[in-house]
Nucleic acid binder design. Structure first.
Lengths: 140, 140
DNA sequence: ATGGAGGTTCCCGTAGCTGGAAGGTCAAGG
DNA sequence: CCTTGACCTTCCAGCTACGGGAACCTCCAT
């Protein structure tokens, strides 16, 4: 199976598959012509990666998850801890965004949004309180 | 005023200030020795940037906001639209994360988290449904 | 004179890919 | 047999918004 078929079967773009090989998440063999030859097991790992990335796990989390998956002497405790930590980070991020949302929504509500230049949003940005340098992470 | 004082006055790290100059958000003059010389207005713009970034606006949003701020013939409508779009993106992100959270929480709850290898989390990752390649953005 | 606390530029690294260039390979059609 | 087009390959650049650190310069106080 070459990369195009593996992409179709796993749901991942070919570019992503090459990247995953580069960082050592999969090790497909090669045909004589240099083409990658994906075995069923490779495709299975790719689908596993597609799903774990889809749940928001980081690449390093995924690496650990693949390791646990391959180890049949694993303790489910280890898997659960990894997922629970992930959940904690998601919750932290949601809280951060909700706080942001409240502030921005307040400003939007306060602005008339008409043709005149007076704007409480700009006034707040220009004169509001300075907090320590601490950014919300980018949205995308 | 040199960069250290400007940093203290605006709440931004010196590194960030240099970066903002590089991408054209500020244009401080230079002293004879090559040191940046920040005027009150520069510091004001920096504080403005600190606050707008703190509300999660992107750099390009901040550039636009600074432009609107400097233009006293602006319509508050334009400012409001920018902020409202930002709010929309925040809400979209929150929804995305809440959906993620629900799924991950379900898996965490289902896992015994003991010393045995059986784990519904791994089972789901290994055999769950494949969705189109569409990632949640990284958390950080 | 000297030491240290500032300042300067420049380049690399971050996460996780995506896009594109330059080129090799394969199967089908003329 | 040759060509066309769809594949495949590698490599390099770029994305966000900076932070770390090197190598070097400048100022001020002792």
């Amino acid at each position: 199976m070459n990369i195009g078929e593996a992409a179709a079967a796993s749901g991942l773009p070919a570019k992503t598959i090459r990247y995953y090989e580069e960082i050592g998440l999969i090790r497909p063999k090669r045909d004589g012509n240099g083409y990658r030859a994906f075995a069923e097991d490779d495709v299975h790992r790719l689908a596993f990666l597609n799903r774990s990335r889809g749940l928001g796990f980081s690449i390093e989390d995924c690496r650990a998850l693949l390791g646990l998956y391959a180890d049949d002497t694993r303790a489910s405790e280890d898997v659960k801890r990894l997922a629970a930590d992930h959940l904690t980070r998601i919750d932290a991020r949601i809280s951060e965004l909700q706080a942001l949302r409240a502030t921005v929504a307040g400003l939007v509500d306060a602005c008339a949004g008409d043709g005149r230049p007076d704007c409480p949003i700009l006034e707040d940005l220009a004169t509001g309180p300075l907090c320590a340098h601490q950014r919300p992470k980018p949205l995308a």
